[in-house]
Structures are given as C-alpha cells and as structure tokens.
C-alpha cells in the first residue's frame, strides 16, 4: 500500500530493445484516459538519448538521469530525481521510470525505497521480448534471471511476431524463474489489453 498518497512508481524493466519505451508510451496514453497525472523518468546510456528526445517531440516532459555517466552512481541521481518530484508535485498519480536496458534493476530499488517506498510498492513490469528468447538464454543469464525475479509481472510483447508456442515458451521461462508470476501477452502496437489496464490502474485503490 502506498502511504501518504504518494504517486505509484511503475518501473519498466527489460533488455535493450525489448519494448520499454513503447510500453511506457502506451501507459501514458492509458493513464490520460483515466485522467491520471504521470511524471516520466528515462535513463538511457549514451550522451544523446533517443527515447527522451522522442518523448519531448511528442510533447511530454521527461526527466533525464544523467545518461550514461560512469562516475556517479545512478542510485544517487535517481533518488534526487524522485525526491524532487515528490516535493514539487502534490497531484502526481504515477512516476513512470524506464531504466537503461543494461541496468541491473536491483540497483535501482534502494534509491526508490530511500524515498519512502516499500519494495512491494514498486510496480516492476518486466518486458519480455519473445523474439529474443535464444539471445536471453545464451547471453543474459544473470541479468535476465535477476530481472524476472524482481518483477511483479511480465509483459510478453511482440506476440504478433512469434508463434503461439514461442509466446508460451516465454511465459514458461518466466514462471520457471519466479513460480506463479503473472504474464500478460500483448502486441504493443495495439492498445494495452483491458485486463492489463485494470491490473495496472486499478491497483492504487487497494
């Protein structure tokens, strides 16, 4: 449960190119239907961030964490950014955060809990790109394992690009790492499924 009407933190995790920004954009659209106010934080590695530029061109305000800075731990920046948001916005419903696709999500948790959130408050959605199952298995063992393990639920996207079997295989992979974890299967080029929308937006009243 979120205390003191704090905005809910939704974390979009997943490897490079999995679909985090696409998912984030869909979530903003959905939130606006529910008339919810969102703040967006993006951390991209590389000096010139593409996602944040895109967001700005679409008319959204984005808070960057110093992208790719190798000297400062992202933790400190993230904590400062969230605190800044909390201090300056009373009416915020959600903080949507897309960390870099190579970041270890566990490293972000401390910054968020330092801002007064319990770990269980963090809506961590792992975006699982089923077109890259083999790549994940071969090259990303720990990052993949840790990310799924930390996630609250999994979105298996790009279902328009793979067979049903592949989608199932992805769901099974996630469940084998974290038994019982719920997977939502979606084509993110379409609207978010209503089941998922309710799941995400209906949460905060609990």
């Amino acid at each position: 449960m979120i205390k003191n009407n704090r905005p809910e933190v939704i974390l979009f995790t997943g490897f490079l190119g999995s679909g985090k920004t696409t998912m984030l954009l869909k979530t903003i659209e959905m939130a606006s239907v529910y008339q919810k106010k969102c703040a967006i934080i993006i951390n991209e590695i590389g000096e010139v961030g593409i996602d944040n530029r895109q967001m700005r061109m679409l008319g959204y305000d984005v808070l960057d964490l110093f992208g790719g800075c190798v000297c400062c731990t992202m933790k400190v920046t993230l904590e400062a950014t969230i605190n800044h948001l909390l201090e300056n916005n009373d009416d915020l419903d959600y903080i949507l955060f897309e960390p870099s696709g190579v970041a270890d999500p566990l490293a972000l948790y401390e910054a968020i809990t330092n801002c007064g959130y319990a770990e269980s408050d963090i809506q961590n959605i792992f975006i699982f790109d089923p077109t890259r199952i083999d790549f994940y298995q071969k090259h990303l063992k720990t990052l993949f394992w840790d990310s799924v393990n930390l996630a609250k639920y999994v979105v298996i996207n790009k279902i328009d690009e793979v067979s049903k079997e592949r989608t199932e295989e992805a769901a099974e992979m996630a469940a084998s790492i974290k038994p019982g974890i719920k997977s939502f299967k979606m084509n993110l080029n379409n609207e978010l499924t209503s089941e998922f929308s309710q799941y995400l937006m209906g949460k905060e009243v609990s």
Binding site: I45, G46, E47, V48, F66, G67, G68, C69, V70, C71, C72, T73, V76, T77, A80
Partner: peptide
C-alpha cells in the same frame, strides 16, 4: 559524435554535483 567517455558533468578536481563527493572519472 559523443561517447560515454565524455559524459561527465564535472571536472576531475571538482565535487560531483550529484553525489556531492570527490571521485575520479574512472571510478
């Protein structure tokens, strides 16, 4: 054309504005 190496936002001998500490860029 910029790479990750150039993304520091403070000089080597300055306090880092983010964490408030002195540290080298290699850290």
């Amino acid at each position: 054309k910029i790479t990750i190496k150039k993304t520091h936002h403070h000089k080597e001998n300055e306090v880092c504005p983010i964490c408030g500490e002195h540290h080298l860029h290699k850290d």
